[in-house]
Every structure is written in structure tokens, then in C-alpha cells.
């Protein structure tokens, strides 16, 4: 049983600012169904003053993920974007009293969604999915980059591999990257400038299932769903096997006579362009 503070439980029971702002000025997203937690943050921003006038969230996740999202919306309302950008995951955890060490990644998720939302505003409101800044992925199970690990170590003064896992999830599944995390810890904590390790671009077909799903979800969310949503439709990712992507059309799309054209002519074409020309779409 986790030791949640009263404030975590209070925000979990009565989350503030739930939902999505219509015609939002900024939409930031992080996480996925695969990872077990995801957060979508929408903001209303005053164009003159850049003050966040309203903030809403939708979260899939555990009690501390919901509480972190809820408290974040309260923290940023009324702040300018510049002020909001300074909020760290530790600030979110502090605002909640504290979070169990194993749950610190929930506060990191809040910070990342906020970063993505601010980026979204800079790009004129186009939804932005938070992405690790580099291709230099250390933990392939949870798609965590060396930069993200270094940032977590520096911001939160982490000293053990276990801490890094609690804050970033890296190393939390198969554990194969624990040796590499230890090396990063040694480098950062001895103040040496971290040398990026081999950063080759892997072909889509060689990615792990989680990486594939994350990349496909990003394309679906940024390039496909906004189009489908305009016609009252949607698409759900069902499975990925090799380069075969199985999806289900939802809403208006599901019964649409042009469904096959949408699948092949639009969704498959977009995935081929953005990710890999060998991708094919199957209808679930």
C-alpha cells in the first residue's frame, strides 16, 4: 500500500479542472496506454499577456498520476508561460506534500505535459506530444533518453539507479539498461560532461514494440486524428506486428463508405511518409 499524503488523496478523489478546453490555445500530451499512464493538458492563454487563463487535463493512470495532473492545473492557472515553464517535477510533488519515491515519475509526467503544451502554443496551438529530446535512448522498454535521465539526476539530485527508475521509469521493466544508468550517474555526479553514446537511427522494423507504438501514436495524434475528428471520426491503435499496423476506425469513420480510402489513402500514407515506407495498415 502506497503512503499517499492527504492532499494526494484529496486531489485524486476530487480532481480539479477535468476535461479538454474547446479550441485550446495549447495542447500538450505525454505517455500512452502502453506505458500505463498518459496525460493530456489543454490551455487557454491570453495572447497579449501570455497568462494561462484556464487549464484542463485528462489523465489515464494511477491515483498519484491523477493527483499530479490535477494539482498542476491549479499551479499554472494565472501564471505567465515564462513563470509556468520554471515549474519542475519537484515543485509538483512538493505542492502535493510529497509523493512516494516509486511514484515520482507521475510528477515528471506533469512537467513534461506542460513543456509540450508550451511548445504547442509556440507552434500556434498544434497539439504536441512530448518527446525525448534525443534519439539516444537508454531504456528501450519505456523509451527514456540519456538526456531525460541526466535531467532527472540533476534536477532531483539522484544518486542510485533505483532513484532514476522511480523518477523516469528507466530500468523498471527488463532491467537490462541498469548498467548504463549507473554509468550515467557516475558521469553526472562526478561532474564530467556526459558524452553521448552511439546514436544511430534504427530502422522502424528493428524498434521494440513500445517504441513502435509510441511513434505510431504520435503520428496518429498529431497528423491523423485532428483530420478524422473534423468528420466526427477517430482511430484506435490495436496492435503492431512487424510493419503491419492494425487499427480500428471509430465514430463516424466506422460505418463510413469511404473507410477503406481513409485507411489506405490517408492513414497508411501518413504513416508511410512519417515513419517507414514498408508500413501497411490492417483493419481490426
Amino acid at each position: 500500500m502506497w503512503d499517499y499524503t492527504d492532499k494526494v488523496m484529496e486531489h485524486f478523489r476530487h480532481p480539479r479542472n477535468v476535461g479538454a478546453i474547446e479550441n485550446a490555445d495549447a495542447t500538450g500530451q505525454v505517455g500512452s496506454l502502453v506505458c500505463g499512464d498518459a496525460l493530456k493538458l489543454t490551455l487557454k492563454i491570453n495572447k497579449e499577456t501570455e497568462v494561462i487563463e484556464d487549464a484542463k487535463f485528462e489523465t489515464f493512470g494511477c491515483a498519484s498520476a491523477i493527483a499530479s495532473s490535477s494539482v498542476l492545473t491549479e499551479m499554472i492557472k494565472g501564471k505567465t508561460l515564462t513563470e509556468a515553464a520554471k515549474i519542475t517535477n519537484q515543485d509538483i510533488a512538493d505542492e502535493l506534500g510529497s509523493l512516494p519515491a516509486e511514484k515520482m515519475h507521475c510528477s515528471v509526467m506533469g512537467m513534461e505535459a506542460l513543456e509540450a503544451a508550451i511548445e504547442s502554443y509556440r507552434q500556434g496551438g498544434k497539439p504536441v506530444v512530448f518527446e525525448q529530446e534525443s534519439e539516444n535512448i537508454v531504456c528501450h522498454c519505456f523509451n527514456v533518453s540519456e538526456e531525460a535521465i541526466i535531467k532527472a539526476i540533476r534536477t532531483n539530485h539522484l544518486t542510485t539507479v533505483e532513484d532514476v527508475t522511480y523518477f523516469t521509469k528507466a530500468g523498471g521493466a527488463c532491467g537490462r539498461c541498469k548498467g548504463e544508468i549507473q554509468k550515467i550517474l557516475d558521469k553526472v555526479n562526478s561532474c564530467a560532461v556526459p558524452q553521448p553514446t552511439s546514436a544511430e537511427e534504427k530502422p522502424f522494423a528493428d524498434l521494440t514494440i513500445v517504441e513502435k507504438i509510441k511513434r505510431i501514436e504520435k503520428v496518429l495524434e498529431e497528423d491523423v486524428r485532428p483530420q478524422l475528428n473534423m468528420d466526427g471520426g477517430n482511430v484506435e491503435l490495436i496492435d503492431v506486428s512487424g510493419t503491419v499496423v492494425k487499427v480500428r476506425l471509430l465514430g463516424m469513420c466506422s460505418g463510413c463508405l469511404a473507410a477503406d480510402a481513409t485507411l489506405k489513402g490517408f492513414i497508411e500514407k501518413t504513416l508511410k511518409e512519417k515513419l517507414d515506407p514498408s508500413i501497411t495498415i490492417e483493419r481490426a
Binding site: P15, V18, G19, E58, T59, F60, I66, N234, E236
Partner: peptide
């Protein structure tokens, strides 16, 4: 489900 970003997909 009301607060989950995925349930609206249905």
C-alpha cells in the same frame, strides 16, 4: 473514464 484521455476514442 470521464477523466481518461482515451475513453473519448470510443
Amino acid at each position: 473514464r470521464k477523466i481518461s484521455p482515451f475513453s473519448r476514442m470510443k
